[in-house]
Nucleic acid binder design. Structure first.
Lengths: 341, 341
DNA sequence: ATGAAAGCGCTAACAG
DNA sequence: CTGTTAGCGCTTTCAT
């Protein structure tokens, strides 16, 4: 366990002052008119002995940590996992590290998480939050910390945000089912009062209203273990045998729904058409392939990190709020095509 | 943006010394014989004004950050995402935060990541690394930092580790195919020189050797974009029409393999039997359901974090190396059952 | 039981 | 161009 080398050691060895070393290391050599030859000598020695400044001390002093806090619903959800991977890659490329945590839609846990991130002095936040933490986020915005909401907004909170236009996505998906001639189109969604979910429900409702068809919405209590979730879904389909098409508002409901339909032996799309929000390998490779409303993951990640870094690197612009709404894409596959009799 | 309250402010307000406040806050009141009534008063006021000690300053002073660094191959891979979610939950419950990064099997990137984690003074590491960073890890072990390798070992590195016995898992899966009467059993695996992969390959080879059947191993260059990966897999199956069963050594190869077989119109299991390593929704719900070697995710997470926390909380035991090997489970589904003609 | 004070390692203002 | 020095906010020893 070799002794840690300090800035002091390197200054002493080179017989220069600590300030000189620090300035050179922080790229202020030019500005402070330190001779190139000296600067070079410092850099070379630092490299040689592998000196690494203590980031904690540096952060304590400068107030910057170069860490971004990412708060998501659940890292095991493929949607969040993929976006997180993309954000991580992009952040890393720009010199930032990520500290991640999952909320599991628990607002108490989320409050703790936000507090932790503040305590750790993250430089900025990318947040997909459950409702119930509006006060905390408003305080965060007021504090001037750069922050961007993603996937979902928070009621009454004015902040940077990057979300997907689920209303339009769901509207188009529902319209597609209507055009295919389905009449009893159900929506299965989680019982969550979050902006992205209400948006999706609105798109569904509007399309059916325009078509003059009845709505059939089933909200599934949340959070739930996989077992009860499946039971609930099975019960829904058994209670509504006339339902000839179903939209799942999230990827996990879609997965669960496919399992339920298989157990019930309902043939897709002959007996029931299926569309799910979010794309993934299962939907693409299922038999039949499942029609989905695909979210633009790459753009979501790029815009979230881009917006955050912009306000991080331009503190002057704090106050300017950027809100982006990205368009999802309806990917029609066999599961929603009405079989010609 | 209200001014941050400091320990100094609270000491002044209560007309006690800074030391008293600090001691009370760190639970050393008893030890230092601070009166209960005073301690109570301090705690009450701290609570009242919502004072939060600056963790950076605290860490600089104590050398502890209460952050664990988790390095995995790819957070977008469901295996790692699930394990990460479980580890995060367990770590949080014990008061630790997680800093995650993905290596994408790039050893240069991994080296940078390890350096970053050191610079950020994480208290301990949980690592699933590519080969090529043995020297760095050995140095880390030597430095006395608690660390546990998971999923895969590193050649020549003696360290705590929690891995899955892929050799036995693959041996049993292969034996199962042999018992079902398949004769030309292929193994598709990534071209990666990592312990978990060589283990899986060994299990396959041994089972076939014992059965007196020929081996057919195809290594897929890695890393690769999804497109070329699929092309490569398609080419393999076209080149080996006689192959009547295939084992995929990873979940993503399994997914890609199913897509390839579908494109080629090969019926499973009539024309070719399929088994994949790792379980997931796709394999469970595919038609036909896919036989898998399921890894014990929960146990992997629990043992990894448990081992790490044990050595974190028991610095005395540094030097005692814990190596656990967990048993995977063969889950037989329709994809590997030989149809009776 | 308590207060003063010495750092943890670094940055940056200031005075040469 | 360089050296000195005052903190960043907290913990902990030591003397009281």
């Amino acid at each position: 366990m070799k002794k840690k080398i300090l800035i002091h050691d390197i200054a002493k060895h080179l017989e220069v002052s600590i300030a000189t070393v620090s300035l050179v290391l922080n790229g202020k050599a030019k500005e402070k008119r330190i001779s190139d030859v000296l600067a070079e000598r410092v850099l070379k020695y630092v490299e040689e002995v592998g000196y690494k400044p203590n980031q904690l001390a540096k952060s304590l002093r400068t107030g910057k940590t170069h860490v971004i806090g990412l708060v998501i619903e659940d890292i095991a959800n493929p949607f969040f996992a993929t976006v997180a991977a993309l954000i991580e890659k992009k952040a890393l490329a720009r010199g930032y590290r990520m500290l991640f945590c999952s909320t599991n839609n628990d607002s108490d846990k989320t409050r703790d998480l936000l507090t932790m991130f503040q305590e750790r002095h993250v430089d900025g936040y990318i947040l997909a939050l459950p409702n119930g933490v509006e006060a905390e986020v408003r305080a965060l915005v007021r504090s001037g910390k750069p922050l961007v909401l993603f996937d979902r907004l928070l009621p009454g909170v004015q902040a940077n945000a990057v979300v997907v236009d689920g209303a339009t996505g769901m509207y188009e998906a529902t319209q597609h089912l209507v055009q295919q001639g389905f009449k009893r189109i159900a929506l299965l969604m989680p019982q969550l009062d979050q902006s992205q979910m209400t948006g999706r429900a609105q798109g569904y409702a509007q399309a059916l209203r325009e078509a003059g068809l009845p709505q059939l919405v089933h909200k599934i209590a949340f959070p739930q273990e996989p077992g009860p979730l499946l039971q609930d879904t099975l019960a829904f389909f058994e209670a509504h045998p006339a339902c000839d098409a179903v939209l799942f508002a999230t990827n996990y409901l879609g997965v669960c729904g496919l399992e339920a339909l298989r157990r019930l032996g309902r043939r897709i799309p002959e007996e029931i058409a299926v569309v799910s929000f979010d794309d993934n390998d299962l939907f693409r490779l299922y038999s039949p392939p499942i029609t989905v409303v695909a979210q633009p993951l790459e753009a979501l990640a790029e815009d979230a990190i881009g917006t955050l870094l912009a306000s991080l690197e331009n503190p002057a612009e704090t106050g300017r709020i950027v809100q982006l709404q990205l368009a999802p894409q309806l990917v029609v596959r066999a599961s929603s095509i009405r079989p010609r009799p």
